[in-house]
Design a binder for these strands. Structure first.
Lengths: 231, 231
DNA sequence: GTAGAATTCAAACGAACGTTTGAATGAGTT
DNA sequence: AACTCATTCAAACGTTCGTTTGAATTCTAC
């Protein structure tokens, strides 16, 4: 079936790399087959020959990266769980295991890692049903394990709150990676996008948010206006 | 045929409402003129007649909401600045002035406010150049005033750090509004999407992140790429 | 060196896109 | 009544889309 290339084994990867860049630049829908094949320097029909459909191409792009990314995340979680056997890992260690691999991938400019992470961040909110479906499948196991680890590391905190805060953290991280230009458009300056400095900045913020005092939900149902107390 | 013999100014707003919903559901590109006019129950040519082009329609949808949203934000900032004349507002008050109007708009299900805020959250990362351009223009003044207020409320904290954290906060908020279904896909349960409970949850998280200890950047500078070298 | 499979290629496919057209239809004015 | 002007309508415009086709080309193996 998928017997490796006889002719030019480069063609497949040339397409993948070109498509990845174009998807980041223009979005999934706005990137046409002709743009991809032109940039890759291959024939138009090559995409359908090697990948079948455009959706399949998209799926392969995400899979080749996500499988490796989540493998690293789970390995990191295994590591910290093995280290601190008795009491289990601390919340900061769980967060590090989850977010550091993605930030390190976002640092890699040589192999397109940064390109892909920008694409991934944008795709979390992509309405495309096909994309959302396998994104959920690809993340299911990883999310489940990390949420459990986070629950265990924060005994006494309602799981619903942890889930929400994990949601917030993923949003902050995605924007940090995907949309440097977003705030750049907004705020002007912002020349310093050095990803090596991003990690400590983001981790401080995420930990501060995760460990913030729980909100007072006593009259949250009807509350329209009013000042939630800040510690 | 579809509208029995009546001419009316409804056509414009019918198109706007239908388009807003469809843009949220399928994205800007994937929503066609024919989908919009069919849902609105108007003739295909009506969009071009009333709005000129599809891009103009998109722009009008965002403008009619964003102008009002940023007006509310600035009014709220004026209010807190007038109240606490001498020492200036506290960070929590600045954040409230910025984020509460958007969350309240996201609560409004009757007039499509929630629909629009989901669309807006997704659009922050939209590659569409046309959309990004006027989004930046529309936000320029508001962002500038709020960043200044935030700088003043946190004397001694490097502005670069505040800018980053504001970026993180916008990311977390956008995801909280736009992508409840994102985490829902990931995590399963999550039935409770009551926006009235979202506000205190989010504010606690944001304040915790904003006031987190500053990261230690002592040796983050020189390290460019991964840890290929042992220290 | 020739058979046969794998890959590339130029060309075309039908469908869907945003937009334009020109005639039909309505309400308001004189 | 007739005229005006804004709006609606069915139909078509040219373009681009993702995909398919069938012949050429290149590689592998005998």
């Amino acid at each position: 079936m998928s017997t490796p290339g006889k002719h030019g084994p480069e063609t497949r990867s040339r397409i993948l790399d070109a498509a990845e860049e174009l998807f980041v630049e223009h979005g999934l829908d706005a990137t046409s087959m002709r743009m991809i094949t032109t940039k890759a320097g291959v024939n138009l029909a090559a995409v359908n020959y090697h990948f079948g459909t455009k959706d399949n191409l998209i799926q392969e792009i995400f899979q080749r990266r996500l499988v490796e990314l989540n493998r690293q995340r789970l390995a990191a979680l295994d590591r910290v769980e093995a280290e601190v056997a008795p009491e289990g890992p601390r919340p900061s260690q769980v967060l590090e295991a989850f977010f550091r691999p993605s930030l390190e991938l976002a640092t890699d400019t040589e192999h397109g890692g940064r390109t892909f992470m920008q694409l991934l961040g944008r795709t979390y909110t992509e309405p495309n049903a096909f994309v959302r479906k396998f994104l959920a499948e690809e993340y299911a196991e990883t999310l489940q394990r990390f949420l459990k680890a986070l629950y265990d590391s924060l005994p006494g905190v309602p799981r619903e709150e942890i889930l929400w805060r994990f949601h917030f953290m993923m949003g902050a991280t995605s924007y940090a990676i995907a949309g440097t230009d977003t705030l750049q458009l907004f705020a002007g300056k912002f020349d310093d996008a050095d990803p090596a400095r991003l990690m400590p900045r983001l981790m401080s913020f995420l930990l501060g948010g995760l460990r913030a005092p729980l909100p007072d939900m006593t009259h949250a149902k009807t509350q329209k206006r009013g000042r939630s107390r800040a510690a």
